[in-house]
Design a protein around this nucleic acid. Structure first.
Length: 350
DNA sequence: AATTCGGGGCA
DNA sequence: TGCCCAGAATT
């Protein structure tokens, strides 16, 4: 039986991962959120730090969002951290602090979709729900030669049904881990290890020399270019930041005052913009330096960025910005782009 | 149904 | 460089 073959492979090849040492639904929940669109290797340190600072649901629910985001700094997809915090407060209020133990209730929580609900339900409570993630799409599509697009509504529904069938009566908590691990280590995206695959004889993709044709995706990503001019306004050990509040990248993270333009412009042109004039008025300032163009690449955006280092009396800046000391950086969550610049400034001026 | 949300690893 | 990663929410 297929599920037994996969489980057998798993028991011989599985990795030791911190979230596999617990049945605590809270800890499993944290791991699953962190692992959304994120590699295992990237998540491990974040997982350990997070549980050290927030050992229980109650600790997380009582925290400030800013603390949660700070722990998430660098991991990306920050709505995960905001939703995690929201859901912790929901569990505290509506479930008396006890993590819900049914798929239906788990699915209601903010930031938990069908995959994560099935994962938690099976890993923590051994409930029979097939968890279908990117690994499972890849394994099943190759095994059965399924050419339905995994990013279409029809495809998702179809794969969910096939996944449930394939799971059969296998032990959910083990089977789900097994097929996911199989996809992560054995049936990997490029150059899968078919030469040592236990499912080789029954694999449609391999038997038809189409391993690189699965899974099928319909949409393709297109990237936009944005042009950021970050103003590093410093005076001795202090500088200005602001909180990003719009529904855009990095919501509720902090950054330097920003002038964004729809096309690249020179520093001289920047000085003529209405944004610049609005910002500084007649204040005296000295442009200490202008950085090289830093291209920060996100999945859907290329951020062409320059850091303008300006020395001035920052107490004369208009209301709306936060003046912080360099020693207080650890209290504010910053995007990687800003974090990198802060590290450079810190290295040059310790 | 299509778009948007980070950042890193790898051939 | 392009693709993908233990996806979900929003439009």
């Amino acid at each position: 039986m297929l599920s037994n073959q996969i489980i057998s492979w798993y028991l011989q090849n599985k990795r030791d991962l911190p979230w596999r040492e617990t049945k605590n639904p809270y800890q499993i929940w944290i791991s699953e959120i962190m692992l959304q669109q994120t590699r295992v290797a990237s998540a491990i340190d974040y997982f350990n730090r997070f549980l050290e600072q927030f050992p229980t649901i109650s600790d997380l629910a009582k925290a400030e969002e800013q603390e949660v985001l700070k722990l998430w700094q660098g991991l990306g997809y920050y709505s995960r951290a905001r939703n995690l915090h929201t859901a912790a407060k929901t569990i505290q209020l509506e479930y008396n602090g006890v993590f819900p133990d049914s798929y239906k209730e788990i699915l209601k929580l903010k930031g938990i979709g069908t995959y994560t609900a099935a994962a938690i339900a099976s890993f923590a409570f051994n409930l029979p729900h097939a968890a279908v993630d990117g690994n499972v799409y890849r394994v099943l599509s190759r095994l059965y030669g399924i050419n339905k697009a995994i990013d279409s509504t029809e495809g998702k529904k179809y794969f969910q049904a096939i996944a449930s069938e394939t799971m059969g009566n296998a032990i959910p908590e083990i089977y789900n881990q097994a097929i996911i691990e199989f996809g992560a280590l054995q049936c990997i995206p490029r150059n899968p290890k078919c030469d040592i695959c236990p499912l080789l004889a029954n694999c449609f993709a391999h038997n038809n020399a189409q391993v690189d044709q699965f899974p099928v995706k319909s949409k393709q990503i297109k990237t936009k270019n944005r042009y950021f001019y970050y103003l590093f306004l410093s005076c001795k050990n202090r500088f200005l930041i602001e909180k990003r509040k719009k529904k855009d990248i990095w919501e509720n993270l902090f950054q330097y005052p920003l002038i964004e333009y729809d096309k690249p412009i020179s520093t001289n042109e920047l000085l003529q913009t209405s944004e610049w004039k609005e910002l500084f008025g007649n204040n005296e300032l000295v442009i200490h330096s202008v950085s090289e163009n830093v291209i920060h690449k996100l999945s859907h955006q290329n951020l062409h960025t320059k850091f303008i280092h300006i020395e001035m009396d920052i107490d004369k800046m208009k209301y709306g910005y936060i003046i912080i000391n360099h020693s207080d950086i650890s209290e504010y969550p910053f995007p990687k782009l800003i974090e990198d610049h802060l590290n450079i400034m810190n290295k040059n001026n310790p």
